[in-house]
């Protein structure tokens, strides 16, 4: 499953990033490493970016980037 497919308010676990090396490094360093729990909070109008919660903070990403992040469902309260 991709991050872009995760419903609002749902949590998931990052599995793999299919992105360019620079982007990948950037997101990894920002805490989107495999195993990290991510929650999808909101999305912008007209197919704009998504707001996600990574650990203790919030990050905005484009849909196209969320499309390339593989995640798996998880059930952490």
């Amino acid at each position: 499953m991709r991050l872009s497919e995760v419903g609002r308010g749902k949590q998931c676990r990052v599995k793999e990033l299919y992105l360019s090396p620079e982007m990948k490094r950037k997101l990894l360093e920002l805490g989107l490493f495999p195993g990290q729990i991510v929650e999808v909070l909101q999305d912008a109008p007209f197919g704009g970016p998504v707001k996600i919660k990574v650990g203790d903070y919030c990050l905005a990403l484009r849909k196209s980037e969320a499309d390339n992040i593989e995640v798996e469902e998880c059930n952490v309260q």
């Binding site: 950037k26 903070y57 990050l59 905005a60 484009r62």
Partner: peptide, 11 residues
């Protein structure tokens, strides 16, 4: 090609 957009949304 469309740029990326990664932005922290601070509290």
């Amino acid at each position: 090609t469309s740029h990326h957009f990664i932005l922290e949304l601070p509290p």
